[in-house]
Design a protein around this nucleic acid. Sequence first.
DNA 1: GTCTATAAAGCGATAGAC
DNA 2: GTCTATCGCTTTATAGAC
Lengths: 219, 219
Amino acid sequence: MSSVDYVTSDAPKRLSRGEAKARTRELLLEAAASTFARKGFHGASVEAIAEAAGFSIGALYANFAGKEQLFLELLSSRASGQVLAAAEILHDDDVTAGDPADALGRFLVDLADKDTDFSLLQAEFWLYAARNPGVRDTLAERMREPRELLARLVEERRGEPEAPVPPSTVATVVLALFQGLVRQRRIDQGSVPPELFGQALRWLFAGLDEETRQRRDQS
Amino acid sequence: MSSVDYVTSDAPKRLSRGEAKARTRELLLEAAASTFARKGFHGASVEAIAEAAGFSIGALYANFAGKEQLFLELLSSRASGQVLAAAEILHDDDVTAGDPADALGRFLVDLADKDTDFSLLQAEFWLYAARNPGVRDTLAERMREPRELLARLVEERRGEPEAPVPPSTVATVVLALFQGLVRQRRIDQGSVPPELFGQALRWLFAGLDEETRQRRDQS
DNA sequence: GTCTATAAAGCGATAGAC
DNA sequence: GTCTATCGCTTTATAGAC
């Protein structure tokens, strides 16, 4: 801009060499997420990724060992995003002031409808993990902690301490239900109305409560 | 057909020209299903598919317009397999003699654990459809009928005629739940025990019954 | 109808200039 | 640290022999 402060190393706009490289890395990761989502792992070329980030192929190879490592880095850092988003909404008391099931349902429909790359990338991650035992175990390990987080929050909200299955198993069912509904909605919007997410969750919890009561009365 | 009959057009072993070509087509489709499942749409080469079928690339192009048409033919003919399998098991009175939920759950876990290509190909179909609007609408259309079939069978089994949502919507939730559980089980077997399929289905139906009763009592 | 051989294009990855 | 140019390999699809 001006001639006076144009060197100013501590100005917020000017980036140091390390910062510049970190920013390039981040832009490449962002572009990779979008490109992998739209074209798939094999369908996305490193040229397309670099181009989407506004860099050349050389810049990509200066920051990542190759296409596979770039993909795996994405998988490790973003695969549990859906679970964390769900946990976040359950944790927010203001949003879940009404029915937590409705709030969670509405939030996830919004997320899935708005960020269309999300579920595509998620499916790409799943396929890659299902085909590569090593990555599969890594993904399983990485999903464990956020699932436990969701389990604790669901447990809190339900307030029933003696369910017939462990809390993490309930969380598994909730996640499976949501992932399945999001995927079906993507193919046929009309067959999966937005309210269905909260509705199905209420059915699930009502049935779980009933079984919990029955087991308590038996003993 | 022949002058004497020594070509025996109705003998089981000798294949007519048309039959031979039909057999080649079928073998190629089978090999394509397996290869697409293991490598993905872009990852699977036509050479690998032809080789898996025991033919050359030329034979493949003599039977299909190309890789994409081969994939789309598979998608049209096999995408609704999961729904039909579920419907079939619900229709079989002998198998569902006990709890239909348990029977359905056990059957689908067996199917998913045994035919490992099934869910991979299903995911590959979903991704392709989600990325191509034309194919997406085709898939949505093709899923409608089997879903209605499942809906009718679930309705029969439940015997509750006045659910708060249409029967096809209940079928949608059931399918979403199963697909989600199958996928999670594929990544982390330990987190999705086989009994969970039937258990979750029972919770769902119990909650649905409860809401049905409440609505009836209100009016 | 199926084969082999090959054309034309695209890919991941590397080398060297700046 | 990023760019341009290019290598070597694989891909889809076609042509011609049989």
